[in-house]
Simulated assay, not measured.
Amino acid sequence: MVTTKSQSNVLRYDIVGSRRFSNYGFAVIVAIGALGFLLAGLSSFLKINLLPFTEPLSLNFVPQGLALSFYGIAGTLLEIYLLYVIAVDYGSGYNEFDRNSGKVTIFRRGRSQSKNIELTYKIADVQAVRVEIREGLNPKRALYLRVKGKGDLPLSEVGQPIALNVLEDRAAEIAKFLAVPLEGL
């Protein structure tokens, strides 16, 4: 998350969505794998070597070449989905705390314009800022906003856990800005 402070009465955190380095890397790996499987399956069907570094002509089309073609098509469809999600920047958005209007806005981008999520609450309805820290094999470091009648709303982005010092600083800054208690530290 990147902190943006345009005015002293507005606090805004931008949220990184699917346009992160790991997703680009995963998309490249899936594309290479899908292309390899598809070319191996087509080579066994056409009896033309489309992969110069291996010998797919020794494969029978039924069942090996057919299975490889299926995996290649499935990988290509997954690649198309990954590229779409990266293109629309799924999950990106912002958390904005505005004292001028007295509102908190949580916005996340969806798969299409009609699927975007925008939640707006009054600052007076905010009860606390909560930090959740869980270490171990599946670590979790998350920041939540406790809103009257709505429970805990997540403020942190999905993906790798936030550095502990960044999480603590951000939680303290939001709690101080909203003049609410900080829980979980």
Rank of each mutant, 00 (worst) to 15 (best):
Y71N: 08
Y71L: 11
G72P: 00
G72C: 02
I73K: 00
G75H: 03
G75E: 00
G75N: 03
G75K: 00
T76V: 03
T76Q: 04
T76W: 02
T76P: 00
L77N: 06
L77R: 01
L77D: 01
L77G: 09
E79Q: 03
Y81D: 15
Y81E: 13
L82S: 10
L83R: 00
Y84N: 11
V85H: 06
V85K: 08
I86W: 11
I86N: 10
I86R: 05
A87S: 14
A87T: 14
V88P: 05
V88E: 05
V88Q: 04
D89M: 02
D89F: 07
D89P: 03
Y90A: 06
Y90W: 01
Y90F: 15
S92V: 12
S92H: 02
S92R: 14
Y94R: 09
N95K: 04
N95R: 05
E96Y: 05
E96V: 13
E96F: 14
D98N: 11
N100V: 15
N100F: 13
S101T: 14
G102C: 13
G102E: 02
G102A: 06
G102V: 12
G102S: 03
K103V: 11
K103D: 09
T105K: 11
T105I: 15
T105Y: 08
I106K: 04
F107D: 05
R108W: 04
R108S: 12
R109K: 13
R109L: 10
G110R: 14
G110F: 05
R111S: 13
R111V: 14
R111A: 11
S112V: 08
S112Q: 12
Q113A: 13
Q113W: 09
S114T: 15
S114W: 12
S114L: 11
I117P: 05
E118I: 06
E118Y: 02
T120H: 05
K122Y: 08
K122D: 07
I123P: 11
I123T: 12
A124H: 07
A124C: 13
D125T: 12
D125R: 07
D125C: 14
V126Q: 01
V126I: 09
V126W: 00
Q127Y: 12
Q127A: 15
A128C: 10
A128V: 10
V129P: 00
V129Q: 04
V129N: 04
R130M: 08
R130H: 03
V131C: 01
E132A: 11
E132G: 11
E135W: 08
E135Y: 13
E135K: 09
E135G: 07
G136W: 05
G136N: 02
L137C: 12
L137V: 07
L137N: 14
L137A: 09
P139L: 06
P139Q: 03
K140T: 14
K140R: 15
R141K: 06
R141N: 11
R141F: 07
A142C: 12
A142F: 13
A142I: 15
L143S: 08
Y144G: 03
Y144H: 05
Y144P: 02
Y144N: 06
R146Q: 14
